[in-house]
Amino acid sequence: MSEKRLIWFHGRECPHCRKLEPVVDQFESETGTKLERLEVWHNEANAQVMRSLADAIAPACGGDLGVPAFYNENTGKAICGGRIDLAMLLSWAKG
């Protein structure tokens, strides 16, 4: 059975995603945990993965799928939007 992932769905031209990149880097550095970074506008396979998780992610994004969004395969918990910070990421990762 494959290992459960912490996934970051992002878009190459999404300003919030760009601003979050150093926060994600810091998260990875502090926790030693790598996020699976899936770009959804230039990679249709990644977009399909995100759509398949719409039931969990869309409510966190206010009803529609959007980026940046984070999905925890261990807990099924998603967080979404431009106001995510390191504390929110740490809490989301813990479950």
């Binding site: 190459r12 300003p15 959804v40 506008w41």
Partner: peptide
């Protein structure tokens, strides 16, 4: 880029 790749001027922070 979305116009060229997806056919419409879609928001780059949403997903089709």
């Amino acid at each position: 880029e979305n116009l060229k790749g997806k056919g419409q001027r879609y928001c780059p922070c949403r997903i089709t």
